[in-house]
Design a protein around this nucleic acid. Structure first.
Lengths: 204, 204
DNA sequence: AGACTGAACAATCCATTGATTATTCAGAAA
DNA sequence: TTTCTGAATAATCAATGGATTGTTCAGTCT
């Protein structure tokens, strides 16, 4: 069992190197197998198919991301509003930098999104859980009370789509995207009327 | 001059029929010319190229749309909030129905967006003008006061991307999209705190 | 002179085909 | 028995070149 896991891990590492260097399409199962000193056929005892290796790599990375989001959502000593802001900014920056550093990641994301349409939904649902935790906490501390938290989380995701897959919808630079997210967030939190208090507080 | 315009119009009408029936790629300049009983070369006295005919068709249609938006933005007897809602819903419904009725329209939109990247920006800028007019009016009537109206308009567009090209980002049905837009709009107007008053008013 | 034509050209498309590759599985090795 | 191999298969990809099509322009017609 531990044996099996270590082989799986070896395969994933080999594939990770190939995928990020040559791209998903340009690496063959035979190459990954050779890197692991095994036959192509043997890969299929550990993964149902090529795409599943990619998904495994993506998920591994995504779990780390989720962890860091959870941490941001619960940072003590920060207002709920600040933490919400931190969450969405982290989301934007992570994907932006990831695609900047590993341009091949875009190909992988595209392939997975295309062949496994539910995958993106699963990611969104995971993040919504974090939003809901944050809202629960905010309610307890009397910062704001949201009646339908799950729905509200969906609405926030809907309104911030552009910042979740930044390079996909626009060719804006990161600073411009950040300024725009800042503006959207201010609207989402305070509403059009602005309420008066702390219009600058959010920009800090 | 009037002569020239009528020929242009004839070309546009012929192209419109072909494009919506067979698609942009599948109709040839020769066919459009034949429909107008003229040679292919003659088309180029009226349009710089094939894409410009498509753009002309799109723009004609878009101008009508803009007009209807302007009307909605200025409907007397409605609150600014209601009118803002009407605007965004009209936007959603129009594109949704257009693509449902003319599936070929998607191809044309894609081609134009790809070859003329500035076109989409021009459309967005036009609509922002309407938002700004609406905000001016709202300010005058004391409904809400927005400091930077142009920027606020940009933020609203940013937050409602998903509903501007509905079939592009999701496979949701119109009713689901409407419910989602409704939720996003409520957030945008009232903010997360909800302010207390009229949580149901927006859903009416 | 101005309006228009249609053959010519270059760019693009697209079907065909030959090569590559993901996946399977009968059987070898341990 | 369990683990693994590697040739066989079917699906996909990439190259090719022949046909199609957007665009031009020398020249005809009015």
């Amino acid at each position: 069992m531990a044996e099996k896991d270590s082989v799986r891990c070896q395969i994933v590492e080999a594939a990770k190197k190939r995928f990020s260097h040559f791209g998903y399409a340009k690496t063959t199962m035979a190459e990954v197998a050779a890197d692991c000193s095994m036959s192509p056929g043997n890969l299929y005892r550990f993964f149902p198919g090529k795409l599943d290796i990619a998904e495994c790599i993506a998920t591994e990375d995504y779990q780390r991301h989720l962890e860091s989001l959870r941490k941001l959502a619960m940072t003590p000593g920060k207002s709920a509003r600040e933490r919400l802001r931190d969450l969405l900014f982290e989301e934007l920056r992570r994907t932006y930098h990831k695609l900047e550093k590993y341009p091949r990641a875009h190909e992988m994301a595209t392939v997975i999104a295309h062949e496994r349409p539910q995958y993106a939904n699963w990611m969104l649902a995971n993040e919504r859980k974090i939003f809901v935790e944050l809202f629960d906490d905010a309610e307890q501390k009397g910062e704001f009370a949201i009646s339908d938290k799950e729905t509200t989380a969906e609405m926030i995701q809907s309104a911030t789509m552009k910042f979740r897959y930044p390079q996909l919808w626009s060719k804006l630079t990161l600073p411009k995207l950040e300024r725009e997210l800042d503006g959207v967030l201010k609207l989402l939190i305070d509403g059009l009327c602005g309420i008066g208090r702390g219009a600058t507080e959010a920009a800090a």
